[in-house]
Amino acid sequence: MKPYIIIFTLALASCAGNGSKNNNDTLAADSGKKDTSAATRLNTPAQNMEYCFVHTDGKNADDTTAVHLVINANKVSGDMSWLPKEKDRRKGTLLGTLEGDNIKAVWSFMQEGMKDTLAVEFKLSAQELAQKPMNLNTKTGREQVNTKADYSVIYKLDNCEKFRTK
Rank of each mutant, 00 (worst) to 15 (best):
L27V: 05
K139Q: 13
G17A: 08
K2S: 10
T140Y: 07
N48K: 12
T138W: 08
M1E: 14
C52V: 07
L27H: 03
A126E: 15
V145A: 00
K132Q: 07
T138V: 11
P133R: 09
T117Y: 02
R164K: 15
K123A: 06
T140R: 08
P133H: 08
E99P: 03
H55M: 07
L95N: 15
R41K: 14
Y151H: 09
N135Y: 12
I103Y: 02
L118H: 07
A73V: 03
L83W: 00
T138G: 01
E50G: 11
S37D: 14
V70C: 00
D88H: 04
N24D: 15
D30N: 14
P133W: 09
K33D: 09
A149F: 03
A39G: 10
N60Q: 07
N22Y: 06
I7Q: 10
N48R: 10
S37G: 13
K87M: 11
G17M: 06
N18A: 05
K148W: 00
E121C: 11
L10W: 04
L27P: 01
N18T: 14
V54H: 01
D101G: 06
R90F: 03
T9C: 13
G19A: 07
V76F: 04
R89T: 10
T147I: 11
I103E: 04
N72L: 08
Y155V: 01
I71M: 02
F163K: 01
T147F: 04
T9E: 02
Y155H: 03
F109R: 01
R142W: 05
L83T: 09
A73P: 00
Q47H: 03
E86W: 00
D63W: 08
Q127G: 08
L118P: 01
P84W: 05
L95D: 15
T26M: 10
G78P: 00
Y155E: 03
Y51T: 07
A46I: 06
K139W: 00
Y155P: 00
K21M: 13
T138S: 11
E121G: 09
T93P: 02
T165Y: 05
I103S: 01
A66P: 05
K139R: 10
L42I: 11
A61R: 08
I5T: 14
A46M: 10
G141Q: 13
A38E: 14
L83Y: 04
K91H: 08
N72S: 13
H55T: 00
K91A: 09
E143N: 06
P3I: 09
D116I: 02
P3F: 08
G92I: 06
E50I: 04
N22G: 00
F163E: 06
G141V: 08
A46G: 04
N159V: 05
T65Y: 01
K123I: 04
R142D: 12
K162T: 12
T56R: 15
N24C: 06
S152H: 08
Y151C: 06
N146Q: 06
D25F: 11
A11K: 02
K91P: 01
T140W: 13
T40Y: 13
N23P: 00
A149K: 05
M114D: 14
G96A: 10
F163C: 04
R142L: 11
N23L: 10
D79M: 01
N43T: 11
Q111N: 09
A16L: 15
N135V: 12
K85H: 15
T44M: 08
L27S: 10
F8C: 11
R41E: 15
S31E: 15
G96R: 10
K2H: 08
S14P: 00
W107M: 04
I154N: 02
E112H: 04
S14W: 11
L10Q: 09
